[in-house]
């Protein structure tokens, strides 16, 4: 597969896939929460652009609505909410010491290889472009999970959670040219409600353990200590 021989739309999609994957790696190694949130917003912006390009090239108008929804939710509302939370709790001065950073980054790289391995069988029936798009989506999801595992702050967990959604969204846009409208609206609604609930939870967690470090949420055990 030679990228110059592809049409314009495919080239854009492939570049976007690469950039979205890159932002996931940048988030993974980020110990400062404000930068983490910024990278998340950048990832959201890339998704918005991908959606808009897809809407334009495929002449599919309902994708414009998706693009606007993504812009409003993932680039503006959620990063704004998380940023406020960070500033309110004075977490922006701390740099989270990430344990085993090298191992985490290497793990991230192997997850990406793993995604390609898992999805490789579909190459028999479709174009290699699709494999790239789907494999990047899957690895963005897996990297989101790794981000949640390697970070301790509840805010980083929310960023990881939402970046998993980003991976899914990318797959839906690129591989299937967007889900049916009703499903897409439903998903956007769920994301919105989830974001609001996370906001409520930050408040509860802070009033309960006076911190947003989820490692301190350790009262429930299988057996008594």
């Amino acid at each position: 597969m030679n990228i110059e021989s592809q049409d314009f739309y495919t080239q854009i999609i492939l570049s976007m896939a690469a950039l979205v994957g890159l932002t996931s790696f940048l988030m993974l190694g980020q110990g400062r929460l404000l930068r983490l949130i910024f990278m998340f917003a950048v990832q959201g912006l890339l998704l918005t652009l991908t959606t808009a390009v897809a809407a334009y090239s495929l002449n599919n108008h309902h994708l414009y609505i998706s693009a606007v929804l993504t812009l409003a939710l993932k680039v503006i509302f959620i990063p704004w909410m998380l940023r406020n939370e960070v500033l309110k709790t004075n977490l922006h001065r701390d740099v989270e010491a990430l344990a085993n950073q090298t191992a985490v980054m290497l793990g991230g790289a192997s997850l990406m290889v793993f995604s390609y391995y898992v999805l490789h069988p579909i190459v028999q029936t479709t174009s290699p472009v699709m494999l790239n798009a789907l494999a990047v989506s899957l690895s963005v999801m897996l990297l989101g999970m790794l981000l949640m595992i390697s970070h301790k702050q509840a805010i980083a967990h929310v960023v990881g959670f939402m970046s998993i959604e980003n991976g899914l969204f990318f797959a839906a846009i690129v591989a299937t040219k967007g889900m049916p409208m009703v499903v897409e609206l439903g998903i956007a609604f769920d994301v919105l409600v989830a974001a609001v609930l996370f906001g409520i939870f930050f408040f509860h967690i802070r009033s309960s353990i006076d911190s947003l470090d989820v490692d301190l949420l350790n009262k429930l055990h299988e057996v008594d200590k």
Binding site: H157, F161, L168, L217
Partner: peptide, 21 residues
Amino acid sequence: SIEAAWKYFILCGVGIAQALF
């Protein structure tokens, strides 16, 4: 209960994301 709810939210949220994929 807040710990349990957080765990429920995160685990089920991440889990169910797999189903969306």
